[in-house]
Amino acid sequence: MLRRTFVRTGTLVTAAAFAGSLWQEAARATAPRGAGPYGSLGPPGADGVALPPGFTGRIVARTGRRVGGVLWHPAPDGGACFPDGDGWIYVSNSEIPLFGGASAIRFGPGGTVRGGYRILSGTNLNCAGGRTPWNTWLSCEEILRGRVFECDPYGSRAAMPRLAMGRFRHEAAACDPDRQVVYLTEDEPDGCFYRFVPSHWGDLTAGRLEVLCASSGTGAVTWRRVPDPGASPEATRHQVGDARHFAGGEGCHYAEGVCFFTTKGDNRVWAYDAENESLEVVYDADSPLTGVDNITGTPSGDLYIAEDGGNMEINLITADRVVTPFLRVTGHARSEITGPAFSPDGSRLYFSSQRGARGDAAGTDGVTYEITGPFRH
């Protein structure tokens, strides 16, 4: 059973705990900075990233420079990793108007770059997205009546729009293979939280779009079908009267029966318990995590949450409720951290500084990083 958990500034107040391997046996505890499982951050390295002891970083791509044969895109945003024989692939969106799309870097053993290529072109403000269990990438357009594109990270098949998943300001997607649905966030000040129920799992061309409905902020919820996913003329978030609205939906991540998602307008991390159809707040504070955005996780139950602004950190929320910085990018005050994703073996974390040190709105100074170290699995 999912039971209520709140984090307050400086103190983690836990009424009880989530069931399952992710969130168990929590008790009242403080959450000071640097109190996480990896220790305090050290001084920034040559790449400008401050890390805990035992971790190292490197820059793998820069906007406007070639990496593995592809010119790396501006404003790198949401990302994911995919297995590739004895190596892996990191996919990254481009959040720019009209020419957004997504690119991929292919890595070999030891992290050597084997190649780079485009997997999606000619789309608009591709923000976040999500990985599917059948190893495709869902790239989401963050525009009015935006679309979801299903992309082949291996570069063999053309990307396809999945219009049945709705036309709205899409942010992120997270697949729930247990219930065979895809959760979707909406980046609007009064955005909704959706799930797409495909007619056949593994095929997203047809299905039913539903919106989460609730009478209060947390607790039991229901789902109702969105009458017109095409949003013409009425926006999807306005079609169901008792839909629950959220202050700017951002990243989402599914694991062990729980879909975690973030809302930037109130700086919260939420948890939807899919088994019991209940909604709770995991984090609601001003420090140490601020500017909540993209989110990912590990099998150990650790959540990694990127900051949009703030002090340019990826913060960790552990299964025992410790909230602490994991890394900090220095000298990029006008940027945001995007696209955190782990390699398939969990030994490497990829992410980007979308606007880099220059911080220009066009994202022409984007930087993509790789962090290696003793991550908890």
Rank of each mutant, 00 (worst) to 15 (best):
T56P: 01
T218P: 05
Y183K: 00
G69E: 06
G42I: 04
S215V: 07
T290H: 13
G310A: 07
M312A: 15
V60Q: 06
A255Y: 02
A357T: 14
E188I: 04
V322Y: 07
R208M: 09
P233H: 10
F55H: 09
V7Y: 15
F149T: 10
D242I: 02
C175M: 09
R62N: 08
R106E: 10
A206I: 01
L327R: 05
T205E: 14
M165F: 11
A159C: 03
T56K: 14
L212D: 04
E250M: 05
V7E: 13
A16N: 13
P340W: 00
H200Q: 15
G191C: 09
W23G: 09
R8G: 11
P32E: 12
E280Y: 12
C81E: 03
A243I: 03
A271S: 13
V221K: 06
D365P: 00
G115N: 05
G68W: 01
D187T: 09
D273Y: 04
G45S: 12
T63H: 08
G363W: 00
P299Q: 11
N294S: 15
R355T: 12
P229N: 09
E277R: 05
G363C: 01
D320G: 06
S156Y: 12
L12G: 14
T136Y: 03
A274I: 07
G48V: 11
R167D: 06
P153E: 04
R147Y: 06
L98T: 14
A271G: 15
